[in-house]
């Protein structure tokens, strides 16, 4: 009754001069509730110890295991083999630097994004340990949390045709990150600062609107909703006659 699954896995080691890319086949008997995390580990343990892939948390939290599964970038640990046909093709994420086989380096790119966007709270305020912390209303906190749920797996940028063609593009994850600071009342950057950062071809207006980011996001972050809010804020800022220092939520 159990299916025999054929894995066609992309193999290539960029650090080995003699290596050239090819697809290697592995066969595995399917067990109930088998996910790709377990399947790949079984293959590595029992069939091929040279197979390279990334995993840390195996619970959809760390974002390391994103790969192209039958053509769609998503998390391997949250994909059951029973949802897929008998032949499963695995490729590393495009866009990111390849480390070998299914393993890519997302970290360097994400660090670069953080630095470009200065994704930390910009404030002149001093931190007083004795005072009561500033409270935020629940609705706003939830909205910020919604954007903060991003695990930086890189699925959205890998599935984004714009990012794959224009490597400077901030991608859905970068725009989502900056949108999170836009609504955070603790961040004192004004709308002009956002405008310079985001109303660019690297920012929200580089987006062609192919919507793959939201459709492949394994955490179901409402990216398109966020981007329309950002776009309208950009219009407001760009068209307003005088400088406004108003936060969107004040």
């Amino acid at each position: 009754m159990a299916r025999k699954i054929t894995f066609k896995i992309f193999r290539f080691n960029p650090y080995d001069e003699g290596s050239s890319p090819f697809q290697q086949e592995y066969k595995l008997e399917e067990t109930p509730r088998l996910n790709l995390f377990s399947a790949l580990n079984i293959i590595r343990d029992e069939q091929d110890p040279t197979l390279m892939f990334d995993f840390v948390c195996r619970a959809g939290i760390c974002g390391s295991c994103a790969m192209m599964i039958n053509g769609r970038p998503t998390l391997a640990c949250r994909t059951l083999t029973s949802d897929l046909p008998e032949t499963i093709e695995l490729f590393p994420l495009p866009f990111f630097k390849m480390l070998g086989d299914l393993s890519v380096d997302t970290g360097v790119w994400f660090r670069g994004i953080s630095e470009r966007l200065e994704s930390w709270i910009h404030t002149d305020g001093t931190f007083d340990t004795k005072s009561v912390e500033k409270l935020m209303d629940n609705e706003l906190a939830n909205e910020i949390y919604e954007a903060d749920r991003c695990i930086e797996c890189g699925s959205c940028v890998s599935g984004c045709a714009t990012a794959n063609v224009y490597p400077d593009f901030l991608g859905a994850t970068g725009l989502n990150r900056i949108a999170r600071y836009m609504i955070d009342p603790r961040d004192m950057r004004d709308n002009e600062a956002w405008f310079e950062l985001v109303s660019t071809y690297e920012g929200v207006f580089g987006c062609i609107g192919m919507m793959a980011c939201e459709d492949v996001c394994p955490k179901n972050i409402p990216l398109l909703d966020t981007f329309s809010r950002v776009r309208r804020l950009m219009i407001e800022t760009g068209l307003s006659s005088k400088s406004t220092l108003l936060k969107t939520h004040s």
Partner: peptide, 9 residues
């Protein structure tokens, strides 16, 4: 290729 209802995604 995806069998949607079974998956939590």
């Amino acid at each position: 290729w995806w069998n949607q209802p079974k998956s939590d995604i």
